[in-house]
Design a binder for these strands. Structure first.
Length: 550
RNA sequence: GCCCUCGUAGCUCAAUGGAUAGAGCACGCGCCUCCUAAGCGCGGGAUGCAGGUUCGAUUCCUGCCGGGGGCACCA
């Protein structure tokens, strides 16, 4: 559970709940009341719709209920409440006193790197599988979206209190891999690459790197495995450069080894549960029992397993290794596959909602007026490494994370190249560097003293941009919760930009090193320090570096 | 044809039932004796169309239009 004393907004919500309880008597509200930041400054620092929600049950005008709620809030919050008013159709607007803001800053500083952490209720063991591109070529630029999304989602869920694993499912078994091997062999011998093969120049590089490439006594199937191993190392290195590291690269091949193999064990379990039947010489899973629109084949006529069978065995493996929830980050071209996966998951006796498929929309790399085609087989693609060389790791990660995963993303290469300094990520990093610079100016003793000070009883009113910045900082726990619950890393990208903007406004309005009083200087140093810490925290979640000078 | 998904400023994106829809880029005009001008201020500009539910809809529902994707004993 969240440590309530380190989340000022949670404390405020608790006070609101008590006030609402005293007003509503025995009546129940239709929904929990909101407590949110209004868009306009004239509407206070927080607003609640509680009175409007209570109106039907109490059969009274919302504004009258709101007036009683104002009195109850005044009793709850005492001197920490500067103003409370009824507005519009029955909103209650609150403005907090400077003592509240000072206390809130103290709570943020006390929380440190744990600010906004641990809200998950209950914490779960969650496995996030992402990218999982076939190991038949380098990582393409578009996979950078999947990689950044999956990785940052994992970081956010982890901060929120879940136990999170990252896996990459390696399709190292089957005909695509054999095509790769045949292509490498053809390149090594200077022969034309087969129709079904891979044409890219990278195939020639692999051929040059593998001693057995042209050796006729080494069968193509062995060569295929060597090529996969080689490519997998490249993939791992590229993703590591992109700050994406996995707990495990899970081999599909391993599901076919041993006796019984993973696939055999999975199908045995499904058979035991009565979901499997034979028809026309093939073995089928009755996925229509769990919402799919047709049954699916596990073993084809002739005995070959389908990829679906391997996928089921992999889901079983995840389950048996103790993962309570499985998140799959899939490409838009796989969404038709989801109903059968969900049906198979249910057939394994799991609650269907514990398998979540997040469908990523496409990334288009735009160059000039054209969308670059990215086909591995034709060798016409931009690799993730190319993109990182071109616009940098920080800009790539931020750009990929900026938009919601269910929207298509056009990444304009010309723009990214020409205007990389205008990317929002630099603005955020600049705010962080500036904080570091200012804090260096005041010296370590002042900094330590400022951080340790208690602010609650200090006199004096705060400047508007000081209050706004504190409120922005206080918004982090809620953003973490939203980003976690909605699987929406882009919220954190938007928050980071907003926080940087709020800091810049404070920096403009309020001299830090040159504050008029000693007490005010210490307070501003503490505020800048807290902001730097939260910026570092969110940049870390985004996988973007937090430079101390620029 | 059927199914899924997305349409918000010129462009890239925010906003999961709240009040006058927010940023960045681009554009126009102003700001460096001043803790980093990679910055700040001011200005114009947007919810695809039509209904419905609601005190209140960018948000939920229906239809239409437009983009993307999917409808294999392929991988």
């Amino acid at each position: 559970m969240m440590d309530v004393s380190n989340d000022p907004v949670s404390d405020l919500r608790a006070a609101l709940d008590r006030a609402v309880a005293s007003v509503r008597g025995g009546h129940a509200a239709a929904a929990p009341p909101s407590l949110e930041r209004p868009k306009r400054a004239a509407q206070g620092e927080f607003a609640t719709n509680a009175a409007m929600l209570l109106a039907p049950a109490l059969a009274e005008p919302p504004r009258e209920i709101a007036q009683r709620l104002c009195d109850a809030l005044q009793d709850e919050l005492g001197a920490n409440l500067a103003a409370v008013t009824v507005a519009g159709p029955g909103f209650v607007n609150l403005t907090l006193a400077s003592s509240w803001h000072r206390g809130a800053l103290g709570a943020v500083l006390a929380a440190g790197d744990r600010f906004g952490a641990g809200g998950a209720a209950p914490p779960e063991r969650i496995l996030v599988e992402f990218v999982s591109a076939n190991p038949t070529g380098p990582v393409v630029a578009a996979s950078g979206r999947h990689a950044a999304f999956g990785d940052t989602l994992a970081r956010i869920l982890s901060h929120y209190g879940h136990t999170v694993g990252r896996e990459y499912y390696v399709n190292d078994f089957g005909s695509q891999v054999l095509h790769l091997g045949a292509s490498v062999r053809a390149r090594a011998l200077g022969e034309p690459v087969p129709e079904e093969g891979y044409q890219g120049d990278y195939v020639a590089k692999i051929a040059a790197a593998l001693p057995d490439a042209a050796n006729p006594s080494v069968p193509v199937s062995d060569l295929s495995q060597q090529a996969v191993t080689h490519l997998l190392e490249e993939i791992r290195a590229t993703l590591h450069r992109y700050r994406v590291d996995y707990d495990r690269f899970f081999s599909e091949r391993s599901l076919h080894e041993g006796s019984p193999s993973g696939v055999e064990a999975a199908i045995a379990e499904l058979t035991e549960a009565g979901h499997v039947y034979e028809h026309d010489g093939a073995v089928w899973l009755r996925t229509t029992d769990f919402g799919d629109d047709k049954d699916r084949v596990l073993y084809r006529t002739g005995g070959d397993h389908t990829y679906f069978a391997s996928d089921i065995a992999y889901m079983q493996s995840k389950r048996d290794r103790g993962w309570e929830r499985q998140i799959l980050v899939l490409g838009a071209d796989h969404h038709g596959y989801v109903p059968r996966l969900r049906a198979a998951f249910a057939s394994l006796g799991e609650a269907p909602d514990r398998l979540e498929a997040l469908i990523m929309q496409l990334v288009h790399l735009v160059e000039g007026d054209e969308r670059a085609k990215m086909s591995k087989r034709r060798g016409e693609f931009v690799t993730l490494d190319d993109l990182l060389d071109e616009i940098g790791i920080d800009a790539t990660r931020y750009f990929m994370l900026q938009s919601s995963h269910d929207r298509t993303l056009d990444l304009n290469l010309d723009l990214a190249r020409a205007q990389s300094n205008d990317n929002p990520v630099y603005y955020i990093q600049y705010a962080h560097a500036r904080i570091h610079s200012v804090l260096g100016r005041v010296g370590p003793d002042t900094l330590a003293g400022a951080r340790a000070a208690g602010w609650v009883d200090a006199p004096g009113e705060l400047e508007a941009s000081e209050r706004e910045l504190i409120l922005k900082l206080c918004g982090l726990p809620e953003e973490i919760a939203e980003a976690s619950l909605r699987r929406a890393p882009h919220r954190i990208a938007a928050y980071a930009l907003g926080l940087a903007q709020q800091f810049t406004a404070f920096y403009r309005d309020c001299p830090i090193a040159g504050a008029p009083s000693e007490e005010g200087r210490a307070f501003r140093v503490a505020l800048a320090s807290a902001t730097g810490g939260v910026l570092r925290l969110v940049l870390e979640m985004l996988g973007v570096s937090a430079p101390t000078s620029m």
